[in-house]
Nucleic acid binder design. Structure first.
Lengths: 393, 393
DNA sequence: GCATTAATTCAAGTAAGTTGAGCATTCAAG
DNA sequence: CTTGAATGCTCAACTTACTTGAATTAATGC
């Protein structure tokens, strides 16, 4: 895929200042809602008047809504604002080799619609067709008009660009080599589009509606086909120079006397192989969930065998990124993830072993198995509430 | 050390817009110098008039200087501007357990003064004393007044904060536990101060005056006492939640049949141990350089033994950060680093193995052994030319 | 009740970027 | 050699969006 991630260094003027301040205010309302204008002024360093003007605009555009007055303490009661739950929405799409997922999420991070469809193949033509249908269905289901759609976030398996990661189990999408997916989906869907890999999407989903809502720096280990790492550092998504940051599956880890790629120990493929050698086949997350509920021995064995290399990898991630927490999630049942986390034995030699920790070092993602599609939508929401001076082309 | 890295989300106004645009223009002049106002206007998206006003201000404040007209092509010849080589400076200080380094660097990244002093100890009182002397000496040597000093960058060995990395070889600074080093050095030096760890400083040094001048995303593996990783992602320094990102020395790597911390294989301590078992003692970089020139066999053996685990670690860094390049540098002789790089056997399974590479995957740092102190100064310069809306407290 | 406190609104003021007309200087075509 | 196109730059008027300060509203506390 031809994905241009370069961002020019760009100056600011009154118009872009307003744009930035809108994002600041949306971010602060998200974090502190319900909240009044005076408080936002204090938090943002803007004058009350500036905040007042922008809030009026955001309310008029149905980004915000009034949550009543808070009569508590002296003085004029605060008019409190919250994110408008049914004002604006973002569409998330996840493209996989044989399936697509769609999700519609509102500004507050609440999911309003999800759907999974199977595809014969994921060539651009097929995907374009179904993407447009899914968009229409999502909007109709939620009773929305176009203008209420902020944009779409598309999540596709990385890596992007012509690189030498000749993968075996990892199934690339076919026919996308010469396509710029952003331009492609903007053309197809007729709305602003962002494109990321699945792990990054999942990570951002947790920030908008999951366990990372109060975190500014964290890492997300995503169980997809392989294993991906999404990184949010100081509130910004880390993409790397070519959008391929987070290829954690290829990291070499130790397990007992052997060593190998982390993906060989901890991934859905690893589970599949482990179960296959016991004569079991699993297709879906539901299959896995059932086996897990039955306390299936090969599956429990896998947990025990995956935990040590995964612990080592988490220690590595902690030491390299110094996150507030590491989140585990993706296409595995929640209960299985919980067991896996319980089985971890995290290394002592880590900068994350602080005395002043408020959170566990490892959290389980809250977005469940739709996490990547939700992540797509979350990326759009995130963009709207992340202050940043950028070119709007 | 008590280091607060939290940055509030802050709105923008006319004044902060101007501040931002100044940084944009400094960054663009750095990158494209010599360059005229019209070109900067095109690059920045600002009007010629706005650029003109800001350039006049920057020239008046001796950040920029005129480099003559360029008569080439039609139209009015461009009045070209460059960074003013002797206009403003930044002081860099590196604090080590038994020594301090100072460097004075101008806006263009050129070193104007360096000095190393030994210390009986590195308690705050001793450091404060010598820091002030070094500052005075640097300014005097360069014939500067105070106002020409932009600020000081202090580089100290991490990690910061109360964490559970009980290090053996790694020597922490004593007596700094309850000190906020930023406030401390601002008080002592009477100027704006930034504090970072050594690897981050070294990384930024390469961006200002070294091999990373045209890179926006890269990683720097720093040979200090242990081994550190400095990361610049999309032009921004990655610090992690608590300023401790980049603790790469603790990562577990494979080496032949054994495995262990990367630091055990590739670091100055590893070299020391290897040479010690051959009955040799080395104290300084010069000692190492001499041995290397003599083709000392234990040292050459070390190169061969360090290369495989280091290659593995570089592959991991590539896959996690997707940088444009990985830079190796620090307190080792350049020739030794070159040999080490030549001995690397980088893994094939890396997102950095792109067809469209323009640079080698691994570069040797250009800043030599003063790199961390230079990095301190570079951090200040970097801050001045990195557009960003922040609180100035 | 009446002073105090705090949020909000209104109107005027200000900083900084934008726009458009005009000037300066060079190259190139006639 | 003259003239016109191209390009950089300056000046003055204009616009946007934030700030400031005074006035207004609605609670609490004595």
């Amino acid at each position: 895929m031809k994905l241009d991630r370069s961002r020019p260094i760009i100056g600011s003027n009154a118009e872009r200042t307003r744009f930035h301040n809108r994002q600041v205010i949306l971010a602060l309302v998200r974090r502190h809602q319900p909240v009044g204008r005076a408080a936002i002024a204090r938090l943002s360093g803007l004058s009350i008047q500036a905040v007042s003007n922008i809030i009026a605009e955001l309310t008029e555009q149905s980004f915000l809504s009034v949550a009543g007055r808070n009569v508590k303490g002296r003085g004029l009661p605060v008019i409190q604002y919250t994110l408008n739950r049914d004002g604006v929405f973002a569409l998330g799409l996840e493209v996989r080799p044989n399936a697509m997922f769609a999700a519609l999420v509102n500004l507050a991070g609440e999911t309003r619609f999800t759907k999974r469809i199977s595809l014969p193949s994921s060539t651009p033509a097929v995907v374009a067709d179904h993407a447009l249908n899914l968009k229409a269905e999502a909007l109709q289901h939620a009773g929305l008009q176009g203008p209420q759609l902020l944009g779409a976030g598309v999540v596709m398996p990385g890596p992007f660009g012509q690189i030498g990661l000749d993968d075996d189990g990892r199934s690339e999408l076919e026919g996308w080599d010469d396509i710029d997916p952003v331009a492609f989906f903007e053309e197809v869907l007729g709305t602003a589009v962002v494109v990321e890999n699945d792990a990054t999407g999942a990570a951002v989903a947790e920030r908008i509606g999951g366990v990372a809502q109060d975190l500014k720096s964290y890492c997300y280990i995503y169980f997809g086909a392989g294993l991906g790492l999404g990184v949010v550092a100081d509130g910004e998504v880390m993409r790397g120079a070519y959008g391929n940051a987070g290829e954690i599956g290829h990291v070499i880890v130790q397990s007992g006397q052997t060593h190998g790629r982390l993906e060989n120990f901890a991934s859905r493929i690893a589970i599949r192989d482990q179960l296959a050698s016991a004569g079991l086949t699993v297709e879906t997350v539901e299959d896995l969930d059932r086996l897990h509920k039955q306390a299936n021995v090969p599956l429990l064995d896998w947990i025990q065998s995956a935990a040590p290399p995964l612990s080592q990898a988490i220690g590595m991630v902690e030491n390299l990124f110094d996150p507030e927490a590491v989140i585990l999630g993706g296409a595995l049942p929640d209960a299985l993830l919980d067991d896996l986390i319980a089985a971890l034995d995290l290394p002592d030699a880590s900068v994350s072993r602080r005395q002043d920790r408020r959170l566990p070092r490892v959290l389980r993602g809250a977005s469940g198995r739709m996490t990547a599609a939700l992540g797509g939508a979350a990326l759009v929401i995130h963009d709207v509430s992340t202050p940043r001076i950028v070119a709007h082309s």
